[in-house]
């Protein structure tokens, strides 16, 4: 029976141009929707799989604004059974602060008799891309941590995890409790069913306020990189453009004349 805590982050769903707030300290998300990163969708899927396979539970946690309930409900619709919202201004929280706040939640649950055997997270957040919350969380909890993991399963008191390394697929076996950071590519996140959505509406969400005094991320400002100068040169339309394309390949030097 493995109790899994999976951590997700509400991020702006930017697919085109990024706009910044006037003070340059945040992404202006007024005109876009919100989502979680593909890594985290896979972490939620793995949390559900582990909970199902072991007869345990999957709890989903997010740290951020109250609107993060939307992302919690999405995870609750695909198999997580309860949610935790740690309500905080993410702009004031650096990765070490986020890790400390999650560690507090884990310790409080364990003190109350609810074990947290496996913590799953995405490898990096889609917006801040810090690549360190899972590792810092593991240090805060004094637990082993794996990152860059594509798939994992629990066998008795160990987690067996796989990830792509420089020489092939690497296999790890780590004793529980542990922290695992997930990369997309190993599992396919399921779509929510109608009953899943109904359950998600009624699932309990525990709203908490962090006691961590944040040190911040060190952000000075955000900037949008300057667009590439120059305009695109259209070589032609359809198949007729082929000779012009090959001329260009010769000019660049990737094809010899």
């Amino acid at each position: 029976m493995t109790n899994v805590l999976v951590c997700i982050k509400r991020v702006p769903d930017v697919s085109g141009e990024v706009l910044l707030t006037e003070d340059g300290m945040s992404v202006d998300a007024r005109h876009v929707g919100f989502t979680v990163s593909p890594h985290e969708e896979c972490a939620v899927e793995l949390a559900t799989q582990v909970a199902d396979a072991t007869g345990g539970s999957a709890t989903v946690l997010t740290l951020g604004p109250s609107d993060g309930v939307e992302q919690l409900r999405s995870a609750l619709a695909v198999g997580c059974s309860s949610g935790v919202l740690v309500e905080a201004d993410t702009d004031r929280f650096g990765p070490a602060d986020v890790a400390a706040a999650i560690a507090d939640v884990v310790r409080a649950r364990e003190a109350a008799g609810d074990s947290v055997d496996l913590v799953l997270l995405g490898n990096d957040a889609a917006d801040t891309g810090d690549f360190q919350v899972p590792v810092r969380l593991a240090y805060a909890l004094d637990r082993p941590v794996l990152t860059n993991i594509s798939s994992c399963e629990v066998d008795a008191d160990r987690v067996i995890a796989r990830g792509d390394g420089p020489d092939g697929t690497e296999i790890f076996e780590v004793p529980l409790p542990a922290v695992v950071a997930v990369l997309e590519g190993g599992v396919t996140p399921r779509y929510p069913s109608i009953t899943g959505r109904m359950k998600a509406k009624k699932a309990p969400i525990d709203i908490q306020t962090p006691t961590v005094e944040p040190r911040g991320s060190g952000r000075v400002r955000l900037r949008v990189p300057p667009p590439r100068s120059g305009t695109v040169e259209v070589l032609g339309q359809g198949a007729d453009a082929a000779p012009a394309v090959v001329d260009l390949l010769v000019k660049i030097g990737v094809v010899s004349a």
């Binding site: 690549f131 810092r136 240090y139 860059n148 060190g218």
Partner: peptide, 20 residues
Amino acid sequence: PRGNEILAHIAARLDVRMAA
């Protein structure tokens, strides 16, 4: 992947910030 992982461990051990 390894570079960021090792650096995150180092930053946690030294209790300092890390920029990725």
